[in-house]
Design a protein around this nucleic acid. Structure first.
Lengths: 234, 234
DNA sequence: TTTTTTGCTAAAAAAATGTTAAAATTTTCT
DNA sequence: AGAAAATTTTAACATTTTTTTAGCAAAAAA
């Protein structure tokens, strides 16, 4: 049975420990962060199934943390805050939070809201990976085996190259901005300059495309980002 | 632009009227039901984009209403209730409600939670733009994927061209003054001369229109601005 | 008709992206 | 540990795409 991973972001240690204990006893796997920076790195490296976020962090503005995570990930975020002002709620929800819980709250309500959020993000399976391999025009990506073939021929990609391709494939048809890709691959503190991404894309295309100058799998939208071709309909 | 339909289920007439007024003034289409039975039949016939449900109904148990609706529809349900007991919330959420709001609540929080729910059901995307594409006379604009097609044929627009078209489409039917478009695209310090906008419009029409001299999508109101054709009714 | 406004084309300037090779770093293997 | 291999990053430069500018034609308003 798969355990869901919860990232708890909370600077008060006793609250964090309490939530941690409750969740662990209900069969969640829990990680904790006590600062905004820690939260961002863990959100990126851990890919938790859900994030509980206290807005009163010592280093970063809570709203910015939400927006940053939202810019490259769809992880559900439940805000937990002592502030009960309506404006705070509106801000957080509009920034991309999925729910807003005011302290103090009961543990059974917290658990119920976690279940509801997990239900909402249920389009992807519990490990965050799509259930079926991605197929388009002879390109096949098996996310479980982590291998890629073009017309049956196995293609070797380096870890970074694979991350880029997998991220684009999981959002196929949609233009993913350069910064979304960068943050997804190099984490929340990626450079704003995308030259690294450009050389990786050149290498990826050399391996994937028949004619890299006229790609059929990964298109660039100048000034915006990259787009993976639509998945074949089944 | 498309209006979202909200079904308000509430037996106290003055509350119902109040919510109705608030939502209508924020550009939602509102229908009301005052009993559970009415709610069920309207939920099925109307297929509202979202349902606001008061649990204290005269005829049916609120929890059963949620389950009943959930059995055939994934429409988001936000529970609105005077009962603030934790058990009530847990019950409602586990029955399939997407959110639980305790009376009294502020209108801006209600609106924010409605937006969040619409986002969850993929009706709108994280940037607040409609998730469902704009369609008119064979022109289709998918804001989510950043895709434009004319009669199924993909059209490539540059970032500035896309901004212009998107802005007009989001305000389709209304004349947008040249300065409004300029400010939207080039920011608040845009030039007052609109010659740049004119050449962009020429390029846009060359790509979109069959006969740019007699456009069917973007019209010129001489001396005023541009107007995107009305969206097709569904 | 005259004036104003809008449309169109082509060329320039500017910005963004692709490409290659070499240096730096990490990983793997003996 | 040390060498070899693979990967990642940096840097320089080529190429493509986009944006702006300028000039004139066409259409609409006065």
């Amino acid at each position: 049975m798969h355990k869901f991973t919860v990232l708890v972001v909370e600077d008060e240690k006793n609250i964090c420990d309490f939530i941690s204990k409750v969740l662990t006893s209900h069969d969640y796997r829990v990680s904790c962060a006590s600062t905004g920076k820690e939260a961002l790195s863990l959100a990126s490296s851990l890919c938790p199934d859900i994030i509980l976020l206290d807005l009163g962090l010592p280093d970063l503005d809570g709203i910015e943390v939400i927006q940053k995570i939202r810019s490259w990930s769809g992880n559900p975020i439940i805000v937990i805050s002592a502030r009960s002002l309506e404006d705070d709620k509106v801000q957080a929800l509009d920034a991309g939070a999925d729910d807003y819980l005011t302290k103090p709250f009961g543990t059974s309500e917290l658990l119920a809201r976690i279940r509801t959020s997990l239900r909402h993000s249920n389009k992807i399976s519990s490990n965050g990976l799509p259930q079926h391999p991605f197929r388009a025009k002879g390109l096949e990506i098996d996310f479980f085996k982590r291998n890629i073939t073009v017309n049956g021929q196995a293609i070797h990609l380096t870890p970074i190259e694979y991350k880029i391709v997998a991220f684009l494939a999981q959002n196929s048809g949609k233009v993913m901005t350069y910064s979304a890709v960068m943050n997804n691959v190099w984490g929340p503190y990626a450079e704003s300059d995308n030259k690294i991404l450009r050389v990786n894309m050149a290498n990826i295309r050399r391996k994937l495309e028949n004619n890299p100058a006229q790609p059929i799998y990964i298109f660039t939208e100048v000034g915006v980002g990259y787009r993976m071709v639509d998945e074949d309909i089944l």
